[in-house]
Amino acid sequence: MSVQIKTVDIAPRRQTFGHVARRLGGDKPASRYQEATYDIQATANFHYKPYWEPEFWTYDTRKTAVVMDDWYKPIDPRQYYYATYNIARANMNQAVDRNFSFVEERGLLVKISPEARAALERGLLPLRHLHWGGNMNMTEMCQRGYGTAITAPCIFSAADQLGMAQIISRIGLVLDSQSGTSLDAAKKTWLEDPAWQEVRRLIEDSFVERDWFHLYVAQTLGVNGVLLDFIYKFAEPAFADAGLSVAMLTEFMQDWRAEESRWSDSVVKVVAAESGHNKTLVSQWAAHWIARAVEAVKPLSEALLGDGGKAAIAAGEAARLRAVALGLAI
């Protein structure tokens, strides 16, 4: 008996979904990212306007003062959709777990000096509340924003912020041998320590901003660009005695800062370049929130480094240079 194996080429009846084909022009093969992003936003057939905001539809371009001809222009350069995002974060989380195992098995945090422990408890652990605030803001942008190209990465960023809050909580639990006392102390520091109160005021003020792209600028250029960069970059001398351990345990944050900036910078640049109106608004918002973030972090800079706020000013200058590079007039 002989077996003959033959191959048959079957041409697909179409290369992609109709809404993607209409955008790309012709029935061309599309990437998974394009199929999961383009024109997914609901635009019609809503039942009624929300009772709590009757002047807008559920998804409405008027919820921000900036105007775009096409809200799918500011795409994610990382090409993240559900699958690729989760694969990337699973790999990063495995690295986090390995680093925690390394530090815990060798008792590296347990062996640090009392001064280093105090610096971590005062300067790093309260940051879990700031990351929670970032989670709240990015979730708000997802539900109020328009266009899947922006709203999908916003909810991914919200998950990242929550993940970083959990990593900092784990650092606290390692410090106090899983008792949770350090986290209770960090909450008290966040609520009562004068060094943190302007930071807390800033993030709480951002919670009530209703223009979602204004909030996007506040979070990405103000909170992320100044406050988080200050802690993870400019405040390194404050944690010098525990430097290796802290660097290992906050490795995710360092990688995330670079990756998140690629996306957020791209979005701000595209939106600002759309029109003079957009550029003016985004520039004003960026200047306001960067300046507020610098003033908010000055007391913390003095408390941790005793530098009279110089590190805060350096973080602000770096954020301003970044904004100028995006085409903003600051």
Rank of each mutant, 00 (worst) to 15 (best):
K28F: 03
E259P: 01
A186D: 12
P54Y: 01
I150D: 03
V270W: 10
V246G: 08
L244R: 02
E53K: 05
Y59H: 14
V96W: 12
N99H: 14
F100T: 05
A116M: 02
P29A: 15
A218N: 05
G145Y: 13
G107D: 11
L183R: 04
L300E: 05
Q166F: 14
N93C: 04
R89F: 08
V174R: 11
L228I: 07
A159L: 14
L328H: 10
I87T: 10
A119Y: 13
D184G: 04
D184I: 09
H129A: 08
A286S: 15
T148P: 00
Q166K: 15
T7V: 08
P153Y: 10
L249R: 05
D229G: 02
H277T: 03
S261F: 14
Q143L: 09
L249S: 04
W132R: 03
L221T: 04
M1S: 03
D241P: 08
Y82K: 03
E236H: 08
Y80Q: 05
G145Q: 10
L127Q: 12
D307R: 10
T148F: 14
V110N: 04
T181R: 15
V103D: 03
L191G: 01
T7D: 05
S177P: 00
D255T: 01
Y232R: 06
R117S: 02
R210P: 00
A88T: 14
D27L: 08
S179N: 08
V67Q: 15
V223K: 03
M68H: 00
G18T: 13
L125E: 10
T43H: 00
E105Y: 07
A312L: 11
V67C: 04
W196T: 02
P77H: 10
R128K: 15
Q143P: 00
Y38N: 06
K279S: 13
T139Y: 00
A186H: 11
A158H: 10
V110F: 12
L328R: 12
R144F: 04
A44L: 08
D265K: 08
L109G: 05
E295R: 12
G222Q: 07
D39Q: 12
E274K: 01
R201Q: 15
A240N: 04
G147Q: 04
Q254S: 09
D211M: 11
N86F: 11
S245N: 05
M136W: 15
A152S: 05
A329T: 14
N137M: 13
A296P: 05
G147M: 06
W212V: 02
G327A: 10
V270F: 12
N93T: 12
P126Y: 01
D205G: 03
I171H: 12
Q161G: 00
T64G: 10
V66Q: 01
F56A: 06
T280W: 11
R257W: 03
T16Y: 01
T250N: 01
A238S: 10
A95C: 01
Y48R: 11
